[in-house]
Nucleic acid binder design. Sequence first.
DNA 1: AATGAATGAGGGTTCATTCAT
DNA 2: GATGAATGAACCCTCATTCAT
Lengths: 195, 195, 195, 195
Amino acid sequence: MDGFQRRKEQKKQNILEAALQLFMDFGVQKVAISDIAKKANVSQVTIYNYFESKHNLVNEVFLYYVNKASSQFEQVIHSDIPFPEKIKTLIFNKKEVASSINEEFYQYLMMEFSTEGNYIEKIYAEKAVPYLQLLLKEGKEQGYINKELSEEAMLFYIYMLKDYIQREEVYQKILPLTEDITNIFFYGIMGKERE
Amino acid sequence: MDGFQRRKEQKKQNILEAALQLFMDFGVQKVAISDIAKKANVSQVTIYNYFESKHNLVNEVFLYYVNKASSQFEQVIHSDIPFPEKIKTLIFNKKEVASSINEEFYQYLMMEFSTEGNYIEKIYAEKAVPYLQLLLKEGKEQGYINKELSEEAMLFYIYMLKDYIQREEVYQKILPLTEDITNIFFYGIMGKERE
Amino acid sequence: MDGFQRRKEQKKQNILEAALQLFMDFGVQKVAISDIAKKANVSQVTIYNYFESKHNLVNEVFLYYVNKASSQFEQVIHSDIPFPEKIKTLIFNKKEVASSINEEFYQYLMMEFSTEGNYIEKIYAEKAVPYLQLLLKEGKEQGYINKELSEEAMLFYIYMLKDYIQREEVYQKILPLTEDITNIFFYGIMGKERE
Amino acid sequence: MDGFQRRKEQKKQNILEAALQLFMDFGVQKVAISDIAKKANVSQVTIYNYFESKHNLVNEVFLYYVNKASSQFEQVIHSDIPFPEKIKTLIFNKKEVASSINEEFYQYLMMEFSTEGNYIEKIYAEKAVPYLQLLLKEGKEQGYINKELSEEAMLFYIYMLKDYIQREEVYQKILPLTEDITNIFFYGIMGKERE
DNA sequence: AATGAATGAGGGTTCATTCAT
DNA sequence: GATGAATGAACCCTCATTCAT
């Protein structure tokens, strides 16, 4: 890639990053192209040159986001901290860009791309599921996971926790409950200390 | 209330119901007042006569919704089915309007009314929390709940499950997993097969 | 006129008075029928029952105003204070409802009724001009007025002064200049002390 | 300024000119942005791009007007026709844009910008008063003006005449009276033919 | 006669997108 | 390739006026 190409790529990235931040903070619909242009220090038309339409931009921002997130995801899963720690990290580590996405953003994608054959679903399946499966396998081998539970149910559970806790309004209130929530996840509301 | 008043109330309710459905399906921002007017068979101005502004309408739709939801909520909790059934019903009964709310809707409210002192929070605290506490008390008395877990953590858990599962895109996929998810809720991912 | 009629007339007057005040303060176009209804404590429809349209209401308010004003006008002219005092009173007495009218109001009338053959003109001619002529006659007889000046020119002059000074923004600043302005009126800018 | 800039300025001027004419003819409130757009052959949005809001547009039209007017004003005052001619020209020359302003327009400005510290007043003081003072000085030196009259009173007088006569409805009727009105201005209603 | 309820038409403003340089 | 300028469509809201009781 020559210097020219690189500068071009840089500009594209600037736009994606600006859009991502704004979408996250204000939702897709409240953000105008002109807002993104201002934040990225380019003209509106440049955005159109790169992305053709808002529809398309939203899509590419989403892809950009998933990629960014999944590499962090991968890191945690391949690290050598114990299984329960991995779970806790995944669920509660908001600081790192999470593989979970702002809800309005998500809904917007679902509606806008719904004609295109559960597109997001596919992305998720490709980018997140395989890693989660690795994780679950590890959990089972180490005896942390009831082997009779279906994989789907657990995937759902982890995903839900992760996604829900990402929400700005939820996260702050939930932090002091980290231990309890982790406990419920592992042992249920009945608790482990029955014997 | 005379027939005159009743017809007026009826019309107001029509508008609220139309708005609620549209907000749920498409999100607040994508729905124009004219859409609601069409669906409720009234003129746009009538909506303004009743609700003064879109901002205000959103607020009243929210209240309407919370009330509708909380009475169903209450019914389940005061019914005399066993505790685990109540939990399952609460979490999976989407057909009945749930006390959970469409996320874009929720976010919109949070942003628009944020100046007004965590307004939604207050409504929820008043309308939902007391009933959930009753439920948890019952669960503890019947030995279903680990007494060492904080009430907040369990409230959060139930709430999250309920809210998350309500989502259209989630609900369908999750139905076959009902048993497993209930199990995880009660016994955690480690499972119950200890004794 | 029976009590019924009287009550009806009273209501009509309330509406006219409310409308007049609002038109004077905010201009015709900024005042909505609903504002007038509120101020007069009647329903909007009542206004329509009495006046048929806003156009018409404006007209009747104008007539109401001219009548009110011209009787005060008449009083001054028939009083037995000396001629120069009459002039001064006419020109500077803002407190009493003047025969001069708020400008936006005036312009509105001019435009709206322009098709109807210089309607306002006619009203003025009927209500104001005859009295002013009386006044000028008195002035001439007492030697205050150059007999070679046309009546029209003097009518115009008095009218202009009166009208212009009525304006809220002008009146306050002009008060300290009362003497000088009266002097200019009588003796011109060259002043009288040449001989 | 390159051709690009010039065309932009040209367009801005077109809008200002169109707005000015419409405001003068119909008043600010009766004129819709779409009317101005049509007259100036641009889209509504272009007007918003240049002026941001109607409020703002009104303001800029006013400034545009004052500037245009004051340069003509200046010309008359610096020309070398005799003093009485200058007065007559100033007062009766409607064809040239006068430094006087349509009244509804004026009132609108007064109300809308009243919070901003008698804004219009200030503009007038800067643009018109100095020239009038020059004129009065000339008049006094040439013996046309009674030196005992306050400057303010005379400023007021000239201003009033100028402003009032500008009005469309007034101007036509007043033309045949030009001589008489000028006479009254110089010699008062008592007339000069004493000596 | 009087009113609460309802409305069509229109106004200011914003936004995604295209044009022209 | 990049941009400033321009726009059609749509949205929220207001108002004079009419309907129905």
